[in-house]
């Protein structure tokens, strides 16, 4: 078999195939829950109501989507330039660390502390990705492996800090950092509802990335570099500088996830601050076809699967890992579906 490009794919193909991919994911969900001995329809129903069925559920989903929008944007920006940043997890923790350091050590008043924490976080995340980016551009070291390995190094570094110099003396022995003061936390958008301004910041970032990608020279250069670095270089685009700038942007965005989780939700730093948000961001970005506004939608979808699965597994005997399987299958089905909107399979 081989692939043949389709000159003008019709709407049936462009909408039908991605819809089919989602339908296939639902079929997998049913099969998995049947495998667990549960009623598939009931499992799906519980997942949907658990994610979107009540005000509480919806807010929980929005909260869970917030870090995923940041990491999803970080990945989308990087992958667009074919910079394979798999290290959003490390960048997130770097951002969380700076947020806690600035929030607890400087004793600044809230209105001053919050922007400084965000800027510190961005700088830390950008710095963490700068290393692999420079190794890639200067020495040709593959960034996939270096960013992946740095996730493990960062996790150990955080664990050391939380058991050593940054350990909360009032923490009853738990490895966690002291909490940042109340006035340095991100306030809630609506009083009494558990949704903080981190979510609004995430939406703002999505809009910002969209503007950068569609309305600025850097956006054009990132796209050109991603599509064909040789051609971009020939056209006079400083490819190396573009990759470094992309890395700073991507690392900074991932770090904001850490900032938002600490300053908006948790108040302190623990080793389990991130539920693999850095890795899940890859799925979020791919499902959004690397489109910054699409990232918001796909982050809500992905967050819904996680929140829904958590809530469902309390009522039905289906393990929560169903969420991770569904995410991976959705990703694989979707990339295949998108390919088949542009190519047709022919024999020979």
């Amino acid at each position: 078999m081989r692939l043949e490009p389709i000159a003008a794919p019709g709407p049936m193909r462009r909408i039908g195939l991605p819809a089919l991919a989602l339908a296939a994911t639902v079929v997998v969900a049913c099969a998995l829950s049947a495998l667990a001995g549960a009623n598939p329809a009931r499992t799906l129903g519980l997942m949907i109501t658990g994610a979107f069925g009540s005000k509480f559920a919806l807010l929980e989903t929005l909260n869970r989507a917030t870090p995923l929008i940041f990491t999803g944007l970080a990945i989308a920006v990087a992958f667009k330039a074919k910079l394979w940043n798999i290290g959003a997890e490390a960048q997130l923790y770097a951002g969380a660390l700076l947020t806690v350091l600035i929030g607890t050590q400087l004793g600044l008043p809230g209105p001053l502390a919050i922007p400084l924490m965000a800027l510190g976080a961005i700088a830390a995340g950008a710095l963490v990705l700068l290393g692999p980016a420079l190794l890639k551009t200067r020495l040709g070291v593959d960034e996939v492996v270096t960013t992946l390995l740095l996730n493990f190094v960062m996790a150990l570094f955080i664990s050391y800090l939380l058991e050593g110099p940054l350990k909360d003396p009032m923490g009853m022995g738990w490895p966690k950092s002291p909490s940042i003061p109340r006035d340095a936390r991100l306030p809630r958008i609506v009083d009494g509802l558990r949704l903080h301004w981190g979510f609004a910041l995430a939406l703002l970032c999505a809009a910002g990335v969209w503007v950068i990608q569609t309305r600025t020279t850097l956006g054009y250069e990132i796209r050109a570099t991603g599509q064909n670095p040789e051609a971009a270089r020939f056209a006079g685009i400083p490819v190396t500088r573009v990759i470094v700038k992309t890395a700073l942007l991507s690392g900074g965005l991932a770090a904001l996830a850490g900032f938002s989780e600490v300053a908006g939700l948790e108040g302190n730093l623990t080793t389990d601050l991130s539920a693999s948000f850095g890795y899940t961001g890859i799925v979020v970005a791919m499902l959004a076809l690397l489109h910054p506004l699409g990232v918001v939608v796909s982050a809500l979808f992905v967050a819904g699967i996680f929140v829904g699965a958590d809530s469902m597994s309390r009522a039905a005997e289906v393990p929560t890992y169903i969420a991770d399987i569904l995410l991976a299958t959705a990703l694989l089905f979707m990339v295949l579906a998108i390919l088949l909107t542009k190519f047709r399979v022919v024999r020979g």
């Binding site: 078999m1 081989r2 692939l3 998995l32 495998l35 667990a36 394979w84 798999i86 996939v144 890795y279 890859i282 799925v283 791919m286 393990p319 890992y321 169903i322 991770d324 399987i325 995410l327 991976a328 299958t329 990703l331 694989l332 990339v335 295949l336 390919l339």
Partner: peptide
Amino acid sequence: VPFGLSQHVVGLGITMLATAAAYYAYRL
């Protein structure tokens, strides 16, 4: 191979799928 999809994306997808499948099966 036949579909020629991004080896980065598919590889990471397979890692997520295989890991989650093993954990799911273990819990079951």
